[in-house]
Design a protein around this nucleic acid. Structure first.
Length: 242
DNA sequence: GAAACATCATTGGG
DNA sequence: ACCCAATGATGTTT
């Protein structure tokens, strides 16, 4: 969980204990992978949140919804939106976008995630997958501007989808090692915490699933470093301050 | 066995 | 050095 010093489950930040009911977490571990999975919202509440987000969230269009791969331009196979504190930005495939201001629904979900985890977040990337054809290829969330000590909190609403982790040394034709992928299903109302150093060693993807016919909204809450120069960011990331 | 589905290597400009 | 998605070949499921 937040401070991964071999402490057993349910040892959340004490300052939140009296405000939040404990949630049964499921630990997901492998070499260099450390995740926690739980149901954060009951079905009725998750249904309501999904409906509100469908009304409220404004997704990128035009050039922001395209990506260039091997010289060709494609529409991104999903819809994306970015919300967060004023001035924060997110970079996807070389393009920088500005966070829109928090909406009430997004703040409500963010508070629920903080109550369950004791972690604070200043940014959320929203991905909407209209059906099982929409997907996201294998990647890591290792942007320089992310706080390397903060987990990424992934909230799922709508259709359940498979989610796959693959170790960076077990990819490609002549991979150096044989490490089994870690697969899970992200349910309606669930929360997946990806703790450091998961995103250093493991790629993840949301593969195509042709049998899925309804939409899923995913919210990945992050902590982006604010008011930090590139110089000191590099020092923080390399754990080698002046 | 056939069709549908899943997995994975392949493709390059920024 | 790495990222990103579609494609066709191969492997698996129904």
């Amino acid at each position: 969980m937040e401070e991964h010093e071999g402490v057993e489950e349910e040892e959340k930040d004490p300052s939140f204990e009296e405000f939040s009911h404990p949630i049964p977490w499921q630990k997901i571990e492998a070499e260099g992978l450390d995740c926690d999975y739980a149901l954060l919202f009951l079905k009725g509440e998750a249904d309501n949140l999904f409906r509100q987000l469908e009304e409220e969230v404004v997704y990128s269009t035009g050039e922001e919804a395209k990506v260039q791969v091997f010289g060709k331009v494609y529409n991104i196979p999903r819809k994306q939106a970015t919300y967060g504190n004023a001035g924060l930005t997110y970079t996807y495939s070389g393009v920088r976008r500005l966070a829109s201001p928090w909406t009430p629904t997004l703040e409500y979900i963010r508070n629920a995630v903080t109550g369950a985890t004791g972690q604070k977040f200043n940014f959320v990337l929203i991905n909407r997958y209209k059906d099982g054809q929409d997907h996201m290829g294998e990647h890591r969330d290792d942007e320089k501007e992310l706080d390397p000590s903060c987990p990424i909190a992934s909230v799922s609403l709508g259709a359940a989808r498979d989610f796959v982790f693959r170790h960076r040394d077990a990819r490609g034709k002549r991979s150096s090692r044989q490490i089994d992928p870690v697969k899970l299903e992200l349910a309606h109302g669930s929360l997946l915490l990806m703790n450091p150093p998961t995103n250093t060693f493991w790629y993840h993807s949301l593969p195509v699933r042709k049998k899925v016919l309804s939409p899923r909204i995913n919210l990945t809450f992050r902590r982006i470093l604010e008011d930090v120069t590139k110089q000191s960011k590099r020092n923080i990331n390399s754990k080698n301050p002046d």
